[in-house]
Design a protein around this nucleic acid. Structure first.
Lengths: 157, 157
DNA sequence: GTTTATAGTTAGATGTGTCTAACAATATTA
DNA sequence: TAATATTGTTAGACACATCTAACTATAAAC
């Protein structure tokens, strides 16, 4: 897989996400989305075009190539899963989880990501519904100790 | 708290960690530790000196100021906690956990870090010892399904 | 169909972080 | 203590990512 800087990955991801809601993607939209000025976008897009991730006709619309889409799905997939884990498992606020996911998505390994996804799924597929250990963790966060029922009578870890 | 780039944080952390085992810290050691050339170290150290994180006499030894030590402990603390979480909770390999911790330590928020530390502690202080949910998670990773005992007879989430 | 507004581009500057090559200071050792 | 080896520094180059200001192309309005 070709190496891309965090910055270029962000541009690809931005194009991907913008195209969920907009029929076409324009330079200006990307600038707004990433909070940068348009010349920065033009620069980045030109690099991405050269490297085969983006199609772009001068003064026209932008779109991801197949390779670009693939990469965007990878990065955005990590984003979503990180967000789910941070909010759903650790109970981090939505705002912070989003920010953290935006950063961490560029750095976390495939291996760790897989395990994290597994963990979220392990939680979501609990036969009991809301898993006892999650309730116990939330209790632990709130009161700084395990609930008295925790691990007594084999109730939960 | 003053802002520092990932790179400069790495230099501070390197000085901190090297000083665990070496009486004195030298430019060459940092270069080896971070796998960069010595001019890069000199550059970074000069910036850190100007900004009050490092004391350095030309051609002499290096040491962190009080502010530098404080920052180093913060960053390295995150590193250790991330490592513990990745290996201990998610079961990521030692090698990958170390690499991931090295990157993520610069980006993760205080809020998420706090929750993550809580979670590790929640695991470590389980009255049962090894928490049932962790065993169940490992089972889930291995076999792709919850063990039959899971959440039956109130055994565990 | 001109004029005006909007969007996109180019040129040039800045800041960061890295490198190689050449040079300077300290440490080692003969 | 003079020669040599090691370590540290400086100078200059390059890549990346951003910006402002000036310019150009397309779109909208009159």
């Amino acid at each position: 897989m070709k190496k891309l800087s965090q910055s270029l990955e962000d541009y690809i991801e931005a194009i991907h996400v913008i195209s969920f809601t907009n029929k076409v993607v324009r330079v200006k939209e990307i600038a707004k989305f990433l909070d940068v000025k348009t010349p920065s976008v033009v620069d980045a897009v030109s690099k991405l075009t050269k490297r085969g991730f983006v199609n772009h006709e001068k003064y026209g619309y932008l779109e991801l190539t197949e390779e670009g889409k693939k990469r965007a799905r990878e990065v955005y997939g990590k984003h979503k899963e990180l967000y789910k884990f941070l909010t759903g498992v650790l109970g981090v606020s939505n705002y912070t989880s989003k920010k953290d996911a935006c950063n961490i998505e560029h750095y976390i390994s495939k291996e760790a990501m897989k395990k994290m996804i597994k963990f979220t799924k392990f939680m979501d597929t609990c036969p009991e519904g809301n898993p006892p250990w999650l309730k116990n963790f939330n209790y632990y966060v709130k009161y700084g100790r395990h609930p008295s029922s925790c691990c007594k009578k084999g109730s939960c870890g």
